[in-house]
Design a protein around this nucleic acid. Structure first.
Length: 115
DNA sequence: CCATTGACTTAAG
DNA sequence: CCTTAAGCCAATG
């Protein structure tokens, strides 16, 4: 790993945003990408999450896809870890789908930026 | 170095 | 409403 690579910068930005997600809240890859100015690169956010493995400071379980589906749960240590963590924060998950997703949605664009 | 893939999203048919 | 296509870019073979 070359920390000198500028690509690391993007990952770090993703980590910072994810770390700012309040407990009991979730957001989407696209929203984070949009906040970082790379709307079309939502995949890279997911890739950043993959690199975020082993980082307890990065609650990757609070990041889901646009529909509120736990698409990345299979990439966790075990497929149940993600849902378990969300439920521990008061989020109800049924069939990999976050119930009342809109109510738990946290948009960095709306919460961090603006004005 | 080229081809394929992927924790996504939007648009079009 | 469901299926394809395309755009994005890093990582992997």
């Amino acid at each position: 790993m070359n920390l000198s690579d500028k690509s690391r910068n993007f990952f770090l930005d993703v980590y910072e945003v994810v770390k700012l997600i309040p407990e009991g809240k979730v957001t989407s890859y696209g929203s984070i990408a949009k906040y970082l100015g790379v709307v079309r690169s939502s995949r890279m956010v997911g890739w950043a999450m993959n690199a975020a493995h082993g980082k307890p400071e990065v609650p990757a379980h609070r990041v889901v896809n646009r529909a509120g589906l736990l698409t990345g749960k299979e990439h966790f240590e075990n497929p149940f870890a993600m849902q378990r963590k969300l439920e521990a924060e008061g989020i109800v998950v049924i069939d990999n789908q976050i119930v009342n997703f809109a109510n738990h949605f946290w948009d960095p664009m709306q919460e961090l930026t603006i004005e």
